[in-house]
């Protein structure tokens, strides 16, 4: 099965933390930026705003690192935490290559993005469209005539443009 994941357009993110708050509310019933599955990196001086969230690695290092088998990958790529098996050793936190996975400040069990079962609240609530779901379906790029006509010049433009399309949440092959 082709996996979906969250994509971030950093030029659109304004750093309002609305995604974090609704994530925390949906999963924990309270508002906190420490209890969300998505977290913002910010620097006010330079105007840096960038949300980081589970990349759904395949194979997933967090799953491999878990000594008790509490973490498992579901068929859609989402990491499932079996709280009963977890011993809060934080091996998964250390192993996460993006430092996204974190422990719940109260229960000390790992919290990780579950894509809200298909329509993530962060994507729904984002006021600037900076967050999208990378879709299952693939779109054909279909600019062969331009490629044939322009050659190397086109190659460069197409690379940049395909990068942009990924940020827009369009899967191009």
């Amino acid at each position: 099965m082709v996996k979906r994941k969250l994509v971030v357009d950093p030029s659109k993110c304004v750093g309002c933390r609305y995604c974090e708050l609704w994530c925390s509310f949906k999963h924990e019933g309270v508002f906190s930026t420490s209890l969300s599955r998505i977290s913002l990196i910010k620097d006010d001086r330079l105007g840096l705003d960038y949300p980081v969230v589970c990349e759904f690695c395949d194979p997933a290092p967090c799953v491999a690192s878990c000594p008790t088998g509490a973490l498992n990958v579901l068929s859609n790529g989402v990491i499932y935490v079996d709280v009963g098996k977890c011993v809060s050793c934080s091996e998964c936190v250390t192993s996460c290559p993006y430092n996204v996975l974190k422990l719940h400040p109260i229960t000390s069990k790992p919290i990780v993005c579950d894509l809200c079962g298909g329509s993530p609240i962060c994507v729904v609530k984002c006021p600037t469209n900076a967050l999208r779901i990378y879709p299952v379906g693939v779109v054909e790029y279909g600019l062969e005539e331009l490629a044939a006509l322009l050659g190397k010049q086109f190659k460069r433009a197409a690379e940049a443009h395909k990068g942009l399309m990924r940020l827009w949440g369009v899967r191009v092959e």
């Binding site: 030029s11 304004v14 750093g15 309002c16 609305y18 006021p127 600037t128």
Partner: peptide, 17 residues
Amino acid sequence: NVKNRSCFSCVLPCSRF
């Protein structure tokens, strides 16, 4: 202006970088 920035939890990001 190159991007917008916002206060905490605001859906009208009116500050501009």
